[in-house]
Design a protein around this nucleic acid. Structure first.
Lengths: 161, 161
DNA sequence: TCCGTTATGTTATCTCATAACGCATCATTA
DNA sequence: TAATGATGCGTTATGAGATAACATAACGGA
């Protein structure tokens, strides 16, 4: 988790997965890949594992540094390719305003991702927005919207205290 | 404007300002700075001018390259500082998903910016969203949201044809 | 005029991301 | 099984985006 320099609060809602819970999540990912003829190869699986183990959003170069089992870093393209795959399948999301990545916390594939980001402790919480009607009304007339990126910033419950 | 490689459509809604219209916009910015004890210094004014002249979102290094009157580039901090100032005063916005900057097209200061971005021609249209109620309901409970970044992607009217 | 504050100029470096190439792997089909 | 095509990986190098740190200059109030 990337905390603000002076954040003294407890961590947010997503401590990293470990042990059987982590293993289950990876097995589930394997199954979803198998069901769509996609391959969860070693580097892809490793990057997903790192995201799931993390307490919060991870930067690409954090993933690169943590990639090897014995401290050897990966080469950048290895990790960026894996991230591209994981995003395509909905296993991970990029948070634009942080240049960072999180594992998807929602069950469904193909959903629209939205995040609230705590400015104090760095936690990022995914939620499922319901834009459709609103956006249709608010957007300049005539645009055919295909995807939406929504990133809100504020304070998580712990950091408001 | 940063067009998609194969976009053959006419340009979007914001051709760059020139002549008296551009001059008026800069004068207006001067006035708004004066009213709040802020200084629209030479590099700040120059970067704002470049944004207003442009047909679409500009990258920081485009601004750096175009900064000098006779082709000499600026140093990166010069432009990044100016952009920081312009964003702070609401004269410009950063579009996170493009790593690019646009001049503000809305009158009011302190508004929340939102954009629709054409995936074909690269046009970016600003609009004023109305999140408040929706976001309060949709966001994970307890977050105190302070700012919202909304960037939608799709096709502008011209590029749907 | 002095002094604190704000802004700029400059150098260097850091972070983030991708291009380009060749080889390996896997599935398909002959 | 071997040829083949598609996909993915390893590697080198470089491109793109942004900031740290420090010195100097300009402004504004006491």
């Amino acid at each position: 988790m990337h905390m603000g320099a002076d954040c003294h609060h407890a961590e947010g809602a997503h401590p990293g997965l470990t042990g059987p819970v982590l293993a289950d999540a990876l097995v589930l990912a394997e199954r979803r890949c198998a069901a769509t003829q996609e391959r969860l190869t070693t580097p892809r699986r490793r990057v997903l594992e790192l995201l799931l183990e993390a307490d919060g959003p991870m930067k690409a170069y954090d993933l690169i540094a943590a990639f090897g089992a014995h401290g050897e870093p990966a080469k950048p393209p290895t990790v960026y390719r894996a991230l591209e795959f994981l995003e395509r399948l909905g296993f991970a999301h990029r948070i634009e305003s942080l240049n960072a990545y999180v594992p998807c916390r929602m069950d469904g594939q193909g959903h629209r991702a939205a995040f609230v980001i705590c400015e104090c402790c760095g936690a990022a919480e995914e939620f499922e927005p319901d834009f459709a009607t609103q956006l249709a009304a608010a957007a300049p007339s005539g645009y055919a919207v295909r995807t939406v990126t929504l990133e809100a910033r504020g304070l998580c419950p712990a950091c408001q205290a």
